[in-house]
Design a protein around this nucleic acid. Structure first.
Length: 837
RNA sequence: GCCGGCGUGGCGGAAUGGAAUACGCGGCGGUCUCAAAAACCGCUGCCCUCACGGGCUUGUGGGUUCGAGUCCCACCGCCGGCACCA
């Protein structure tokens, strides 16, 4: 009677975690004969707790990293903390603790949690973005952008969150509300630092070098929103401004450019609309309209972005005429000028030529205010109908009509011909506009990377010389609800001298958007201790680009776009020599609560990893997360389904430890079932390898379960199998194949089986294709596509033989009912025959 | 509204155009036990049939094909992104 040991994950997991750390098992080698593989995860924000979503993300990434390492790659798998940001400040205000302290305490706890996963992190490369040895180089990078004219300062309307007392980038505004607190966003004019991401808009649309999900590429493409068309310069008479800046009685001609994607509709312009914020509104307004216009402008200013951008049913177009007109440069016609909130100052030129016949918004506007609708484009073969009867604009392309000399121009030439005409007469030109705007990077906040700029009364904004970096962020500040950075009230920080003249000056008190910190962290991992440079060019050349980047899809249009922009800009500065940071990208899915809803404290459906790990161990939790479904799909947590994975781990433990014990009591000897065990081994290697390679961890574990079930059954049927060396080899392979998903139990049993080296250093097993084929195969016989017969035959059976046996089968004959054979199809690699009768 | 994705047993899900429902959960029956739990073994899509066996089934309707969960068209439902972008 054998007494078996019990599977106790807590014990073996902590044991192996310390052993691996002692042996430095997971540090990437700087010099290696093996090909490099940069396996990256999106670094966590140190909120204090690793949640189940982190476990999901990192379990998949670590499984893939381990698999790749065993396949012979020199894998680098670093981890760090994106440690600046608002939550630290909010916690500081709420709990009267300094952000610095709060953040570092959280990091300490999360390091423990990250270690408890048993993932193969290379801790020697850890970065913490709020520490000076990191943010020195964030500042240095800002200066490089500044030097190249890619960072600039301007007074611009900014999204302002009255709750967070801070500005927000457009990308951080969700449906017109603050992404963090949900407060509707207001607009304010403030001096801002921006990065010229729009200079790279076109290049960012090119995804040729990267293997990214179609969905993410599409989201970035839509986000950048490239539109091709023309700029057309309309003109207007406005009062000439006197020396005092006040209008005089004399007039002058000003040009008002518009952007349009449909220059072919130029003859259909019946009105002209400016954004309420357009700088020419005041000068164009006639005295009798002044009161109405000012009221409308004031109203638009108070509208939130949500209201203004809403396209909800029933929201009618609003607007006010200025009592002025502009000249259509092509037709020479005068059309009235309006202001309306459907025209946005931030897109194009803040002005629109109104073509109600061929643009739906202009159509609605014209109907609302009784403006004429003139048809100038007619799809080929369509009859003329009076525009008064139209219910919508006709936006399709077509032949130009009512367009003077352009009449009859076919759809395919219309736009080009009008643009050519505009360019010839110097009244406009081909133009491209983007939805993407420059990246607003100033935050009126304390807990961020200080912007290395000094304001001198004489020299204005002066960059801090590189040898004076870092501009240190004070560790302690006082928080006052002023809406200004607390740094303004720290004299030691604020007051300095001008780098040019040495006279008293003040520092920039705004800090950088944390997305700046996360736009280059993957470069610092490569050379984290470098005190002389942000990175060594040689090391970055060797490791970049990232081979696999796994993280959430919510970063599609922010972090992932910014990081691409950074790399392209740094390339143009000569600081590195590649075009894209992340060669492959994978978005893991979202783990839902047991109720199928998104996890949230208010719903009470949150699964805390620490709790389930205490109960089942890290291996079971990791493997269960991967078993839930496809890795990019996520799904609901199930407290009963995880029991199945827990049972599996126990069955692995029992099968292997039993075999080891029983092997002691007798000599090894081959038995018949050994051959079957060997076939199963090779089949399983093939299946599991394929699943891992495709990041289909759920089917990898399913195959491992079938492998175990199969071996267990073979042993039950023929107990002497335990002393067959082929059975021992099959169990060893089971442990090796399981190692990426369940690193601790496989390591423990691997060592119990007498191996010295770590299971994680084992080469990935190869399979012999000849051994993945069964001794007999089931040939499926269909009649007219329906399954009618199964034949057990040898794998090398010929088509003729199958045909003879199939037609001879009574079941087949019954199914054909004596009808003559029309066609016989045999798919050899599927062992499938179809009889058409 | 536009763009994208997804609809398969009671549940999570599997399936290079070739045996639909692998694997797991749950359920039912059994072994062990005084009993229960755990563990182990067997059964488990739906309908008809005592049974042998037969019919039906991948959101709905149509199509392509020897053969469709998979490809094409239309519709319904759910999820994600964008949303007056001129």
């Amino acid at each position: 009677m054998i007494t078996r040991s019990k599977y106790q994950p807590a014990e073996i997991e902590t044991k192996w975690q310390s052993r691996w750390a002692e042996e430095d098992l997971y540090s990437a080698r700087e010099h290696s004969d093996k090909p490099k593989f940069y396996n990256l995860v999106m670094l966590p924000y140190p909120s204090g707790d690793l949640h189940i979503g982190h476990w999901y993300n990192y379990s998949g990434a670590d499984t893939y990293g381990r698999f790749t390492r065993m396949r012979g790659y020199n894998v680098m798998q670093p981890i760090g903390f994106d440690a600046f940001g608002l939550p630290a400040e909010n916690a500081a205000i709420k709990r009267n603790i300094q952000p610095h302290t709060w953040t570092l305490e959280n990091i300490a706890n999360m390091r423990r949690q990250l270690a408890r996963m048993g993932a193969g992190w290379d801790w020697s490369r850890e970065i913490v973005s709020c520490l000076p040895d990191y943010y020195t180089w964030t500042q240095w990078l800002f200066l490089q952008f500044y030097k190249r004219g890619l960072a600039y300062r301007t007074k611009a309307p900014a999204n302002w969150c009255p709750t967070c007392n801070t500005t927000l980038a457009n990308e951080q505004v969700v449906n017109g509300a603050c992404e963090r607190c949900g407060t509707p966003v207001e607009r304010r004019e403030i001096d801002q630092w921006l990065l010229r991401i729009t200079a790279y808009a076109d290049e960012l649309l090119n995804f040729d070098e990267i293997e990214w999900p179609e969905k993410t590429r599409l989201m970035q493409t839509n986000w950048i929103g490239r539109s091709e068309g023309a700029e057309i310069r309309f003109t207007a008479q406005v009062p000439r401004l006197g020396k005092n800046g006040k209008p005089t009685t004399r007039t002058e001609t000003v040009e008002i450019p518009v952007f349009t994607t449909r220059p072919d509709t130029i003859y259909g312009v019946t009105f002209f609309v400016l954004a309420p914020e357009h700088p020419l509104v005041e000068r164009l307004t006639a005295p009798e309209q002044r009161a109405a216009v000012e009221a409308y402008v004031e109203q638009a200013r108070h509208e939130t972005e949500i209201e203004r951008l809403s396209t909800e049913e029933g929201r009618k177009k609003t607007g006010v005429p200025l009592g002025a007109s502009v000249t259509n440069p092509v037709t020479g016609e005068q059309v009235p000028v309006w202001i309306a909130d459907y025209v946005l100052m931030s897109y194009g030129h803040g002005a629109v030529m109104g073509v109600p016949a061929h643009d739906q918004r202009d159509f609605e506007f014209a109907r609302a205010f009784g403006l004429p609708v003139v048809e100038v484009i007619r799809p080929e073969g369509e009859e003329e109908t009076p525009t008064a009867t139209w219910e919508t604009a006709k936006t399709a392309h077509g032949v130009m009509v009512n367009s003077g000399p352009f009449d009859g121009t076919p759809a395919e030439d219309a736009i080009q011909r009008v643009i050519a005409w505009l360019e010839e007469h110097n009244l406009g030109q081909r133009a491209v506009t983007y939805r993407l705007r420059d990246w607003l990077i100033s935050r009126q906040r304390y807990w961020g990377c200080p912007i290395p700029i000094v304001y001198c009364p004489e020299h204005g904004a002066v960059p801090v010389p590189e040898d004076q970096l870092p501009v240190l962020l004070p560790d302690e500040v006082e928080f006052k609800p002023t809406g200004e950075s607390p740094l303004r009230y720290v004299p030691e920080f604020l007051n300095t001298t001008c780098p040019i003249c040495g006279k008293p000056a003040t520092r920039e008190v705004d800090t950088l958007d944390t997305f700046i910190c996360s736009s280059w962290y993957f470069l610092r991992y490569i050379d984290p201790q470098n005190a002389h440079a942000a990175w060594s060019r040689e090391k970055v050349d060797a490791w970049m680009p990232v081979d696999m980047y796994i993280g959430g899809a919510e970063h599609a249009t922010m972090h992932l776009l910014y990081a691409r922009f950074f790399i392209k800009a740094l390339r143009d500065m000569g600081l590195l020599d590649f075009n894209e940071p992340f060669k492959r990208l994978f978005h893991q899915g979202i783990v839902l609560g047991p109720d199928g809803q998104k996890m949230s404290k208010s719903r009470g459906n949150v699964i805390a990893p620490d709790d389930v790990v205490a109960r089942y161990g890290a291996d079971t939790v990791r493997a269960y997360l991967m078993f839930m479904g496809p890795f990019d799909q996520g799904g609901p947590w199930s407290s009963s389904s995880i029991e199945g994975v827990w049972r599996y781990m126990n069955r692995v433990w029992n099968l292997v430890t039993d075999a080891l014990a029983e092997r002691q009591v007798g000599p090894s000897a081959e038995v018949a079932a050994g051959a079957a065990a060997e076939r199963l081994q090779h089949k399983s290697i093939a299946r599991v390898t394929e699943s891992y390679a495709g990041l289909r961890f759920n089917t990898a574990l399913a195959a491992l379960m079938e492998y175990l079930n199969g071996l267990s059954k073979l042993k039950d049927d023929e107990p002497a199998l335990v002393r067959d060396p082929r059975y021992a080899a099959a169990l060893d392979t089971l442990l090796v194949l399981l190692a990426p998903l369940a690193p601790h139990i496989s390591e423990e049993l691997w060592h119990q089986a007498g191996h010295e080296q770590s299971v994680h250093s084992q080469p990935w097993p190869e399979f012999n294709p000849a051994l993945t084929v069964d001794e007999t195969v089931t040939v499926i016989v269909q009649v007219n596509g329906k399954l009618r017969e199964k034949l057990e035959l040898a794998p090398d059976v010929s088509e003729d033989e199958v045909r003879r046996l199939a037609l001879a089968s009574p079941k087949v004959q019954a199914a054909t009912g004596g009808r003559p054979l029309k066609k016989f199809i045999y798919v050899a690699d599927r062992y499938l025959a179809n009889i058409v009768a």
